[in-house]
Design a protein around this nucleic acid. Structure first.
Lengths: 190, 190
DNA sequence: GTCTATACGAAGATAGAC
DNA sequence: GTCTATCTTCGTATAGAC
């Protein structure tokens, strides 16, 4: 029986991959760049990821999904839905402006470019489901029956707004979406 | 003074490129595939597109943006906003199911992967702006002051829902977003 | 306007030494 | 567990004939 140990190298590679994915996309994230970014030694690629690039991308997608889910869960635990969503938007505003609109969502990148690798696509699908579920659970008590559709609207519109914002190099789309989401959530919970 | 003539070969290549982009993304759309799909002769690539792949992708993005804008304009001209958006959603439902969730939005692909080529990113940005403007103009008479943010919510949430739908291989996210958009638009115009 | 042939680079993957 | 070297494939791009 073997035990997988997350050495520093391995974990660093996964995190670097997630960071590169959100800037360049899946295809353009090469081993060379992952190694340069993570400082990992070349010989460790296929040692840690015998499944090659597909495995690395899959694990990075899962990591990004769970990282975001943890943040969302904390926000939903500490705040009312309206405030939590505002916080989520603020996080995206920071990511966009600090990267000069070079960084987006790694899970979206995985969903689009990982289309040919089922495991990657499924990891993206699971991440989206997790996020929706977290939001739906928080909304459910206030808007029974409509919680799921509101949660989906939140995730979809914010992810879409991030794409628009990157293309237009402006946070304006994100702000406008946030404004409308604020109305929707407030009205539904009122 | 030279005049650019859109020969069949050239236009076919542009349309094929847009179709391939929405399935594979920008990076994975190679000349070989564009040629195979369009039936264009190999020798015509750099004849028609001296700027190489960047130019081809840019023109395909512009084509896709204007094609969609024309459809949106017609819908907004013939129907009330609520019905027009429903029609837009139906179009996406068809694209997703007919392609077995293999096809998404080529403009989104351009926005994400064309990040390194400013001309491509700008073409995507312009497409999104066009669409928003068309929607905002139709909503403006009913909801002055809020038309732009509603228009952005519609575009962003539908584009986001298409990404979610592809990952999860289900139209459910699109349906849920459509349901909420219906409420938002009906309420705003009421 | 279209053809073939080819240059050139980068990518993922593998083998075998240390 | 990490290294170097190499294989193979595929991509864009170019040159020059027809």
């Amino acid at each position: 029986m073997s035990v997988i140990v997350n050495t520093d190298s391995r974990q660093n590679m996964i995190q670097s991959t997630a960071l590169l994915m959100r800037e360049r996309g899946v295809d353009a994230t090469s081993f060379s760049e992952v190694l340069a970014h993570s400082g990992a030694p070349r010989g460790s690629i296929y040692h840690h990821f015998p499944g090659g690039k597909a495995q690395l991308i899959e694990e990075a997608t899962r990591f990004a999904g769970e990282f975001t889910a943890a943040g969302l869960a904390a926000a939903m635990r500490d705040s009312e839905p309206v405030a939590a969503v505002r916080g989520f938007v603020s996080l995206w505003r920071k990511i966009l402006t600090r990267s000069d609109f070079g960084a987006g969502c790694p899970v979206v990148a995985a969903a689009l470019e990982g289309d040919r690798a089922p495991a990657v696509r499924d990891a993206a699908a699971k991440a989206f489901s997790q996020w929706e579920e977290l939001l739906a659970d928080a909304v459910e008590p206030h808007a029974p029956g409509r919680a799921h559709s509101i949660a989906t609207l939140i995730i979809a519109s914010i992810e879409g707004a991030v794409v628009l914002a990157r293309a237009q190099r402006s946070v304006a789309p994100l702000e406008r979406v946030a404004e409308e989401l604020d109305r929707v959530i407030t009205a539904a919970l009122g």
